[in-house]
Design a protein around this nucleic acid. Structure first.
Lengths: 199, 199
DNA sequence: AGATATCTGTAGTGTTCGCTACAAATGTGG
DNA sequence: CCACATTTGTAGCGAACACTACAGATATCT
């Protein structure tokens, strides 16, 4: 028995193209026609490989999360909690205004509210955002154990604050805010972080 | 010549219902069927009164902005810039978790990214968000003139920062963050505001 | 080479979308 | 009461949606 005709397209490259479409138009705003054209494949190939539009999104999110995890690993590898926060904020400002990608972040632009047929999409995106927040919190827990952060500091609050600020920066980026503007916001937020961590 | 059959529904009440649907499902996720059912009218009545789905959104946004302006007037009427920031942040935390409304804010949940056919919807929402930011900035300009804020303070940066934080709170609210959580974020942000305004 | 298994492209499927034609209903002005 | 203007409910329009049946193409395995 044979193994069948091999796939003629690179799945990861296709996912990168799909990611861009979801990012730019949101989950519901992205049509199969747009996706297949961007991926340079036909609908049957898409459905054979990813099952459904939602399956394609999840595959694209997996790939997105993969890259993001690698980035977060570098961020939390900074020596101090303060430097973690600084890198996290500043590199977010840069990433969200990187001309290589649509503005903002896929996990936010992908869709905060969806129709009844796609109700679990916002859920899925929220779960991935929470993951980043968790990574930050764990890093701050460690910083506390290492006496890099004081006893009175709440790692969860710090992580949530940074997560909220970067989400807000996504909203600003989607409205056309430029890199300078986002960096200013990041700088002010970093001041808050400093104030929060040394009383 | 007569004046025609009078409208049998209250347009403002209908807009409130439509607002809720757009808020909960986003512009693209909201269907005419859902809207008409929520508004307790039939499609022809909707189109006679508001022209199109996008026209309905704009009418709902006008009504939303009306209420929001009244609220912002109260916020900026606070005696000091610090108190303005505090009210703005804290009341945002409360409003975004008010069980009377869907989580977050219509101007964010309405849609950051849309399909090609609705490309100006995110634009429209962004314009309304900018309005709030403008109101804050103007208030801080005044505070600077009154020597309530120091010479080195940039009103635009402060306004953008507060706007970004509340947008980020919207994202958190749509992920299920509760009032306590948002208030914590608001509290940390207020610390940043304080730090930014007295160097 | 032959049988088998999977992919690819064409050309659709049924459903739902935003939107509207039409006639009956209901008000005003003469 | 009658002509007129506008709204309302029913029913359905064309277009676009996510998705797929099918046949031909291309690989592997014996």
């Amino acid at each position: 028995m044979g193994m069948g005709r091999p796939r003629a397209f690179d799945a990861d490259a296709a996912l990168d193209r799909a990611m861009d479409v979801f990012w730019r138009h949101g989950y519901e705003g992205a049509t199969i026609a747009q996706l297949t054209e961007a991926m340079s494949i036909n609908p049957p190939s898409l459905y054979a490989a990813f099952g459904s539009k939602e399956g394609l999104l999840k595959a694209a999110l997996d790939r997105y999360t993969e890259k993001r995890d690698a980035w977060m690993d570098r961020v939390v590898s900074a020596a101090t909690a303060h430097e973690v926060a600084e890198r996290f904020l500043m590199e977010h400002a840069d990433a969200q205004t990187d001309p290589a990608n649509p503005p903002g972040c896929l996990l936010v632009q992908g869709g905060l509210a969806c129709g009844t047929g796609s109700a679990n999409v916002p859920f899925e995106l929220a779960a991935r955002r929470t993951r980043t927040e968790d990574q930050l919190r764990e890093r701050f827990v460690r910083a506390k154990a290492e006496h890099d952060l004081g006893e009175s500091v709440d790692p969860a609050t710090l992580a949530r604050y940074l997560s909220a600020v970067t989400s807000g920066m996504c909203v600003m980026a989607s409205s056309g805010a430029n890199r300078e503007t986002l960096r200013e916001i990041a700088a002010v937020s970093l001041k808050a972080f400093e104030e929060q961590t040394k009383p």
